[in-house]
Design a protein around this nucleic acid. Structure first.
Length: 427
RNA sequence: GCGGCCGUAGCUCAGUUGGUUAGAGCGCCAGAUUGUGAUUCUGGAUGCCGCCGGUUCAAGUCCGGUCGGCCGCCCCA
């Protein structure tokens, strides 16, 4: 084993993995497109300040997980730990205020300095959907619907469960927080160490603690639902009605609290039991205060991010690539002719492997290893007649085909094998 | 950041109570008519036994550290 190692928590995507990765991204992109979302890309690093102000100084993501560094000009920069902040910044930077609502899709790498585990890496990748400037609950429904469709198209929705909650508007949230802190402070002695720390930083997190002692305390804790004001309750009800009408199954989870400070109203997660401790496959929510928080005009926002690596672990293998056709020339004249033929066929969109090394046996072995569907054998005998030998590598059948009819003949063969496949490849 | 398990060919693994040149399967390479593959047969190469240090006459086997992986906590996608 070589001592040349990748950085901890990073991974190479070799062709087989990359095919699944691309399948996930392409599926999400296609679904987002059907909802009218347009793709954007923002830089992979930003001023540290952006994340500190946007995500919240006291969150774990900002306080202990950021890859921050000083550039040569002395600016503090940070590799993005998530994609939302950068999109909001781009919205403000480019003055897109009169293009609202903006429905955006993006995908790319994010970085967090964490201990790697299954479904958790230091460089990971997300697909991401954001809608800016749409404060209506119908938009929450649409955004969740996009996520459900992506999972459906990847054939993993059945193994996931959608959980939704309302964190309320800022007024409700502040009122609840106060009641909650009072309650937990009164029972401080019974809380776990982790939860005592959470008490000043993010008291709502105590609600979904896994500690048994905490759970006992939680049983008597005031409920967020009781502290939502009328507007917040109505908003959440509207979202639920919309999900019902869309036929999207969900479960209200009153303990669902997300770790980033910017969430208001709707918070949701698609979770699965198939990925160990990292069960969240897609997570998101509404963040109406975020853009103002980072210095832009007050603008509503809602979105979600999905972990591509986590989705890859659940998703089925993508449809196979088109199998190549191997051209097997023998002799110098044939090799010259083959170069030209290969270029012409590729220009027509066919995948061509030119087998130019070794004797015929080697060349066919190579064609076979590359899973070529056919070999086009051309030697002196064929050249003289203006034909090639077309060999079907699955059936072993071989026949002579005129050079100028080769492409048509390959099409005929492709149709034939397609109808065979339809017969027996159904899962 | 905290706790547990693990680290032997490209891959999956075996290596007896520490004892000579470290093994298997798969894969890879070559050959069995120098114009016919995927099946078969024969042969071959492959390893700083993760790394550093310690104990010992002797370490892949024991001890410590370190790097990496896996699992859980924290947190999140």
């Amino acid at each position: 084993m070589s001592k040349l190692q990748p950085v901890r928590g990073t991974h190479d995507l070799l062709p087989a993995d990359q095919a699944i990765f691309a399948h996930v991204v392409e599926t999400a992109r296609a679904v987002a497109h059907t909802y009218g979302y347009r793709e954007v890309a923002t830089p992979i690093f930003e001023f540290t300040e952006l994340f500190a102000r946007g995500i919240g100084e006291t969150t774990d993501v900002v306080s202990k997980e950021m890859y921050s560094f000083e550039d040569r000009g002395g600016e503090s920069l940070t590799l993005r730990p998530e994609l939302t902040a950068g999109i909001c910044r781009a919205f403000v930077s480019n003055g897109l205020t009169n293009e609202l609502p903006l429905k955006l899709f993006t995908a790319g790498a994010a970085f967090r300095y964490e201990r790697p585990q299954k479904g958790r890496q230091r460089q990971f990748h997300q697909i991401d959907v954001e809608v800016l400037g749409a404060p209506e609950p119908e938009c929450d429904v649409e955004v969740i619907s996009v996520a459900a469709d992506v999972l459906e198209r990847l054939e993993i929705l059945a193994r996931c469960e959608l959980r939704v909650n309302s964190l309320g508007d800022p007024e409700s949230r502040a009122a609840y927080r106060k009641v909650l802190v009072d309650y937990y402070t009164a029972h401080r002695g019974r809380l776990s160490e982790d939860s005592i720390r959470r008490l000043d930083r993010n008291p709502m997190r105590i609600l979904d603690s896994k500690d048994e002692g905490d759970r006992a305390v939680n049983a008597g804790a005031p409920s967020l639902a009781d502290h939502l004001n009328a507007a917040s309750t109505e908003f959440f009800d509207a979202v639920r009605r919309g999900l019902d009408a869309s036929g999207i199954a969900y479960k209200v989870d009153r303990s669902l609290v997300r770790g980033l400070d910017y969430y208001t109203h709707t918070a949701f997660e698609f979770v699965t039991e198939h990925l160990g401790a990292q069960g969240t496959v897609i997570g998101g929510g509404r963040y109406d205060g975020l853009i103002e928080q980072i210095g832009g005009p007050p603008t509503a926002g809602i979105g979600w991010a999905g972990g591509i690596e986590r989705l890859m672990m659940l998703a089925n293998a993508p449809p196979p690539d088109d199998r190549p056709i191997a051209i097997v020339p023998l002799g110098e004249a044939a090799e010259r002719q083959a170069l030209k033929l290969a270029r012409e066929m590729r220009a027509g969109g066919l995948a061509i492997e030119l087998a130019y090394k070794g004797n015929m046996k080697r060349r066919l072995q190579r064609a076979n290893k590359l899973q070529a569907s056919h070999a086009v054998i051309m030697g002196d005998a064929e050249l003289a007649k203006g034909v090639v030998a077309l060999k079907n590598l699955d059936s072993g059948e071989q026949r002579e085909v005129a050079l100028d009819e080769l492409v048509d003949e390959l099409e005929v063969e492709a149709m034939a094998s397609l109808s065979d496949l339809l017969g027996d490849v159904r899962d």
